[in-house]
Design a protein around this nucleic acid. Structure first.
Length: 430
RNA sequence: GUGAAAGUAGCUCAGAUGGUUAGAGCACCAGAUUGUGGUUCUGGGGGUCGGGGGUUCGAGUCCCCUCUUUCACCCCA
């Protein structure tokens, strides 16, 4: 009976595994150099933990199970609740701010499509316990630091930045009641995906008063903060939030990544838990879904039963990123080749023991070395050496009776006889 | 969860209107080459044509169901 892979999952053959490792290694490296420490949690949690924040709709997109003790559990669909739980547990002993990152494997029972699978990896960085927008700027910088590192330029991607606080302030200032905000957020979030006239139509459905809907339209397309000020008028809330946004852009300029960043009032970010600066990174062409997103969530720790502590963070999935990197030919340019330092071959069966012995001697000195199980033709073994991308091949033949090895450089094709002792003595030095 | 398209070897794909034993390239294995790889040539293995049912003398081909993939919705924590 043939069993197929589960819907929405991927098999990582060595070739794909190399890609995955390269992406994740990059995430880790950049996190560490930006001062983040790595953490991880269990891959499943109480189902309740994920219901708590987001309600029943989310539960349908969870892989859940009941253990033998009757506990309702779920495979984690995101990392933030686990982070909140872990930080809350030790909140009094952790030095603040907490700057942590993680690369969890996550699960969502959605219908798979381009850039979205049921099992994936996500880079998370979070700063907890700091309410300055400098922390928001640092999260954005770290994100760009990675994307820039892998070769994406400001012509490939843009960080679109806005503020929940700003948007809420503006809308309330127009006299829009609190209970309408949720539905409006959802619509505004889509403004970039919809054709302009369709968006306008939907907006008028929600906001029939033309004077107000016009202002919202203008707001969504406005880019310069000077004209924003005219638009929001003497609205205290919105002004404070706009100052914050400007402050973030100043920090980002100072950090040297302002070419990547633009203000975009259309960035709203799906659900309710964001409270301040929000951002998404998109490909400039706009063909793919968001590469990553993040923002400030000052109420979350409190929602999870802890003290009111501010937090800001970012999550980046591996699927969309990989698609973009492939499109830009950045993967094949940068992926390190799997390399063997030495391949040890013998000319016939009588030298097999010596071949194994030399290989092990190399391995015990820390070199990646391999040999062939078959002692057939030398040409076969050399082909295997070549296929496994070995830098050098050691040939064991008649010379070995005089304690000599033949060292063949697989790139140049040149080879030389070296005494075994001298060969290993040379290795120790280097 | 809704809608659309597709599924033939490990991969990319041929296979007019239904008709003998389903093909090619790449990949894999072996030989040409008894101490020298990446090139070349020759040969070989590998398919319940996604699965099940139906129509027919006969189905890879037509019909129905199902699974999977892709795309668009929903959603995006």
């Amino acid at each position: 009976m043939k069993i197929p892979p589960v819907k929405g999952t991927r098999d990582f053959y060595p070739q794909e595994m190399a890609v995955r490792n390269w992406i994740i290694d990059g995430w880790k490296k950049v996190s560490l150099r930006n001062g983040f420490e790595e953490y991880d949690g269990p891959i499943f949690e109480y189902l309740k933990m994920f219901q708590l924040k987001s309600g029943d709709e989310i539960v349908e997109q969870l892989f859940s199970l009941t253990d033998r003790g009757g506990r309702d559990l779920a495979l984690r669909p995101e990392m933030t609740p686990t982070l909140a739980r872990m930080v809350n547990q030790r909140i009094n002993s952790l030095p603040r701010p907490v700057k942590w990152f993680s690369v969890p494997r996550l699960f969502r029972a959605e219908r798979p499509q381009k850039g979205r699978l049921r099992e994936f990896f996500q880079w998370n960085i979070d700063i907890i316990g700091e309410d300055s927008v400098l922390a928001d700027a640092e999260v954005i910088f770290t994100t760009v630091d990675y994307l820039r590192q892998v070769g994406l330029t400001d012509r490939d991607i843009k960080v679109k930045i806005s503020s929940r606080k700003f948007l809420a302030g503006f809308l309330k200032g127009l006299g829009i009641p609190e209970q309408k905000l949720g539905a409006l957020y959802v619509l505004l979030d889509k403004s970039s995906k919809l054709p302009a006239d369709a968006f306008e139509e939907l907006l008028i459905e929600q906001i029939p008063e033309k004077s107000i809907s016009d202002k919202i339209l203008k707001f969504m397309t406005e880019q310069s903060s000077e004209q924003m000020i005219d638009l929001i008028g003497p609205n205290e809330c919105a002004r404070t939030a706009l100052d914050e946004i400007n402050q973030v852009f100043e920090y980002l300029k100072n950090m040297g990544v302002s070419d990547y960043c633009i203000f975009d009032p259309g960035i709203v970010r799906g659900l309710a838990y964001y409270t301040g600066i929000v951002f998404e990174v998109h490909d400039v062409v706009g063909e793919l879904r968001a590469i990553c997103g993040g923002g400030r969530y000052d109420n979350l720790l409190k929602d999870f039963g802890g003290p009111a502590i501010p937090a800001t963070g970012m999550g980046m999935g591996d699927c969309v990123l990989e698609i973009l990197l492939r499109e830009k030919w950045l993967l094949e340019k940068q992926l390190p080749e799997a390399r063997l330092e030495y391949f040890v071959a013998c000319v016939d069966e009588s030298f097999k023991d010596a071949t194994v012995g030399i290989t092990m001697a190399l391995r015990s000195r820390g070199f990646a070395a391999n040999f062939s199980y078959k002692s057939g033709k030398l040409s076969k073994q050399l082909k295997q050496a070549s296929d496994s991308n070995a830098k050098k091949c050691i040939i064991i033949g008649e010379e070995f009776k005089d304690k000599k090895l033949v060292i063949k450089d697989m790139v140049t094709g040149r080879q030389e006889e070296v005494e075994e002792d001298k060969f290993f003595a040379g290795l120790e030095k280097s």
